[in-house]
Computed example of a mutant assay.
Amino acid sequence: MKSVVLMAASLALLGGASAGAAEVSPEMLAEGKAVFTETAVPNCGICHTLADAGTAGMIGPVLDDLKPDTARVEKAVTSGVGVMPAYAETLSADEIEAVARYVATSSGGE
């Protein structure tokens, strides 16, 4: 997680990150990673590969390659996409925001 925070801070200093990415706190990234790897049922890593999370799912897209932004992740997590279930009934709005910001930041989408 430390590398994600340092990457976001470095990009912000260089002008390469959006304002949203620069505002992501280490606590929110930690919460988002926990939602990705543990809280969500089924957890995101079962289907998705994300290097920062140490996951190697084989069903959904490789998030490191897709590099989705926060809005795209929030929409997918909230409503579901294809075979991916919707999590609006099982995760809070804060958990959805945290996982969306975590995925976007750690994959390089923001």
Rank of each mutant, 00 (worst) to 15 (best):
K75D: 15
G108I: 00
L50E: 04
Y87Q: 11
H48A: 06
Y87V: 13
E74I: 13
V35S: 04
A71G: 06
V62G: 03
L11M: 13
G45K: 03
A104C: 05
G20V: 04
Y102A: 14
L6G: 05
V73F: 14
L13Y: 06
V83S: 07
G82L: 01
S107C: 08
E89P: 02
A53P: 09
G20Y: 02
T105V: 15
F36I: 10
E23D: 14
T37V: 12
A17P: 02
E38W: 05
S3Q: 07
E27V: 10
A98Q: 04
G54R: 13
C47T: 11
A8C: 09
T105G: 09
G60N: 04
Y87A: 02
M7N: 07
G80F: 07
A21F: 03
T49W: 13
A100F: 13
A76G: 08
P61C: 11
G45A: 05
G20L: 03
E23W: 02
A51G: 04
G80V: 02
A30G: 06
T39D: 09
S10F: 04
K67L: 11
T90I: 13
A30M: 02
Y102P: 12
S3K: 04
A93Q: 01
T70V: 15
P68S: 12
V41E: 02
V35W: 09
P61E: 09
L13F: 07
E31L: 10
V73S: 10
S79Q: 13
A98E: 00
L13W: 05
P68A: 06
A100G: 15
V99R: 05
I46V: 10
T78Q: 13
R101S: 10
E89H: 00
P26M: 12
L29E: 07
S10Q: 10
K67T: 15
M1T: 10
V4Q: 10
A12H: 09
S18C: 08
A40E: 00
T78N: 11
A40Y: 03
S18K: 06
R72S: 14
K75F: 15
V77M: 08
G57W: 12
M1F: 14
L91F: 02
T90E: 01
S10K: 08
G80M: 06
A8V: 08
D52M: 03
K2P: 03
P26R: 01
L91G: 01
D94Q: 14
K75P: 05
K2E: 10
D64I: 01
G32L: 14
A34T: 14
L14P: 03
T55G: 07
I96S: 05
R101G: 07
E23G: 15
E110V: 13
C44F: 11
V83Q: 02
G32M: 13
T78Y: 14
P85L: 01
G108Q: 07
